[in-house]
Simulated assay, not measured.
Amino acid sequence: MSGRLQHKSALITGAGSGIGLESSILFAQEGSNVLLVDVNLAAAEKTAAIIAQKYPNVKAVAVKADVGKEDEVKSAVDAAVNAFGRLDVIFNNAGIMHPADDNALNTEEKIWDLTMQINVKGVWWGSKYAILAMRNNPTDEAKGLHTGGSIINTASFVASMGAATPQLAYTASKGAVLSMSRELAMVHAREGIRVNTISPGPLKTPLLMDFLNTPEKRDRRLVHLPMGRFGEAVEVAKAALFLATDESSYMTGGDLKVDGGLTSSYVTPLGEPVLPPPRSLV
Rank of each mutant, 00 (worst) to 15 (best):
residue 103 N to A: 12
residue 124 W to D: 07
residue 111 I to D: 05
residue 105 L to R: 14
residue 123 V to E: 02
residue 117 Q to D: 12
residue 105 L to M: 15
residue 129 Y to L: 01
residue 110 K to D: 10
residue 116 M to L: 15
residue 105 L to S: 12
residue 103 N to W: 15
residue 118 I to R: 00
residue 115 T to K: 03
residue 113 D to E: 13
residue 102 D to Y: 09
residue 129 Y to V: 01
residue 118 I to T: 08
residue 127 S to A: 13
residue 103 N to F: 13
residue 123 V to A: 12
residue 118 I to K: 04
residue 106 N to Q: 13
residue 106 N to D: 11
residue 104 A to R: 10
residue 124 W to G: 03
residue 101 D to V: 04
residue 127 S to E: 06
residue 112 W to S: 02
residue 109 E to N: 10
residue 116 M to F: 15
residue 103 N to Q: 14
residue 100 A to P: 05
residue 114 L to K: 08
residue 114 L to C: 03
residue 100 A to M: 13
residue 127 S to D: 03
residue 111 I to F: 02
residue 109 E to I: 10
residue 130 A to P: 00
residue 130 A to K: 01
residue 103 N to C: 14
residue 125 W to L: 11
residue 107 T to I: 09
residue 114 L to D: 07
residue 121 K to T: 07
residue 105 L to Q: 12
residue 114 L to F: 05
residue 128 K to T: 08
residue 129 Y to M: 00
residue 126 G to K: 06
residue 122 G to N: 06
residue 112 W to M: 10
residue 115 T to M: 01
residue 126 G to S: 12
residue 115 T to I: 00
residue 103 N to T: 13
residue 121 K to D: 14
residue 121 K to S: 12
residue 107 T to Y: 03
residue 106 N to A: 09
residue 118 I to H: 05
residue 118 I to P: 03
residue 116 M to H: 11
residue 120 V to F: 04
residue 107 T to P: 04
residue 117 Q to T: 14
residue 115 T to W: 01
residue 123 V to W: 06
